Simulated scan of single mutants.
Amino acid sequence: MKPPAFEYAAPSTLAEAVSLLASRNGNAKVISGGQSLMPMLAYRLAAPELLVDLRHLKDLAAIRIEADGVRLGAKVRWCDIENDRRLAVSHPLLAEAIKHVAHYQIRNRGTVGGSVAHADPSAEMPGVALTCDARMTIVGPAGTRVEAAADFFTGPLETSLEPDEILTEVHLPAWPAERRWAFLEFARRKGDFAMAGVALHYDLDGGGRITDAHIGAIGIADRPIRLAEAEAVLNGNQVTDKLIAMASAKARQTVDPPSDIHAPGAYRAALVATLLSRGLKKSAV
């Protein structure tokens, strides 16, 4: 199918881009990599009057590793993350998750900002952002604001972004060198959207007990979610096979995935428990 007719602009500044969005009263869309938006246009799921292309905004394509964490510009592509060897140390969970994103061709074009703003509940980057307490920098006519990932994702393909706002940066907090972590997902074919996925990280205190456990899941709800009940099972305890079984069972009991043409909800709930069990065992090695 062909996309609907639209006007096109490629502003040279962020302020100009925001102004263009504001001028169309909600009938304009930002485009960067286009890996989510172009299919939506082709299927007439979106029909904006104007596309605002961010290709000239080079400042949004930087990966900055600083004392307070990793800052990903909205135009950073998946292949940029794959090729940045610093991230294997600075944020290994992110580096691992990106290996599961789609296919080679899409990783060459798809962007961090596009994925986060698109907010597909099965996508890896929103899951990582939520699990790691990311903060989003958003620019609009009223200025700049920062929003926590937990407040940013509001529903399936829905976020707190206003039509005249642009997501400019995703900030992942600093990663302790001794942190334990894992990322696992299951899809019918490599590169397909996950039927379910689990991202987790935690630290250990001086007695080897888990502190600050974070467990996120994708593909099982209308947005990425945290498995707070399973986190509570882990916190304050040493990693044992019994503890892993308890946390996995709690995850299975407390999630309520929908059924669809790909899998029944009960299967997805069992899959989350299995992935969590495998992830915890992997992280404990």
Rank of each mutant, 00 (worst) to 15 (best):
F152I: 04
A142P: 13
H103S: 12
E229D: 09
D133M: 06
A217D: 09
F183P: 02
L93P: 02
A119Q: 09
A182T: 01
K2C: 11
L167F: 02
A62N: 13
H100F: 11
L227C: 02
F152W: 01
L87K: 00
P141C: 11
R44A: 14
K29C: 02
R85E: 15
M246D: 15
A228L: 15
A148H: 13
V18P: 15
L72E: 02
G69L: 01
A217G: 03
P258H: 09
D120A: 00
D59R: 08
T211D: 11
A10I: 11
G127M: 04
L87C: 07
L280P: 02
S277G: 15
S23M: 12
A150Q: 15
R226Q: 00
L21I: 03
V76D: 02
A245Q: 13
L200H: 03
V255H: 01
W175L: 11
A142M: 08
V233A: 02
E231S: 09
A117W: 01
G206E: 08
F152D: 01
G33N: 08
G216C: 08
L275H: 05
S122H: 11
S122Q: 12
A228P: 11
H118C: 01
L161V: 04
L14N: 07
K75P: 06
L87A: 06
E229T: 11
A22G: 14
A119K: 03
A117T: 09
D53L: 00
D68F: 04
I225F: 07
L276W: 06
D212T: 12
L204F: 10
R180N: 07
V70L: 03
P224G: 14
R179W: 06
T159E: 05
E231Y: 07
F152K: 09
W175A: 07
L14R: 10
D68W: 01
R278K: 15
M40I: 12
P173H: 00
K242L: 13
A228F: 13
A177P: 13
Y267I: 06
L54R: 05
K242N: 14
A22R: 12
F152Y: 04
G219P: 09
V285F: 14
